[in-house]
Amino acid sequence: MKPLIIQATEDTPEIIFNPEEEIFRVSKISVPENAVAFYLPIFEWLKEYKITPNLKTTFDFDLEYINSASSKRLFEMIALIEKINENSKVLIRWHYEKIDEDMLDLGERFKNLVNIDFEFVAH
């Protein structure tokens, strides 16, 4: 499957979804005004990946800043990832800065709302 690569901008994250190299990474900043438009193609890609996923898929979420509009979309994304879990062994590695308890809280919140393995990585 063709990888999905989106360069980071000042207010949207970098996305690297590359099944061949087993990299699934969302990083940097997500504070767009219109989060819906940005995340739509990502959702489409994930829906397609769900059909024939790798045996094992590890997602790295390594975000520095998130606005609440993005939290909502990230949850939508994680709900889609939960569906991939049916065909692939999924792990979400949630990265956060040690001083950023809010980011840890958000990760734990997501973890409690879905049935996926989470690993928390402090930097």
Binding site: V36, N67, S68, A69, S71, K72, F75, D102, D105, R109, N112, L113
Partner: peptide, 26 residues
């Protein structure tokens, strides 16, 4: 309330209060 708003599937542009809940929590 925060969890419910995250999970709700109401229209994307509607004012949900998620931002205010977020502010209050943080």
């Amino acid at each position: 309330f925060y969890d419910e708003t995250l999970q709700s599937e109401i229209s994307h542009h509607k004012y949900t209060g998620l931002g205010l809940a977020d502010i209050r929590m943080r």
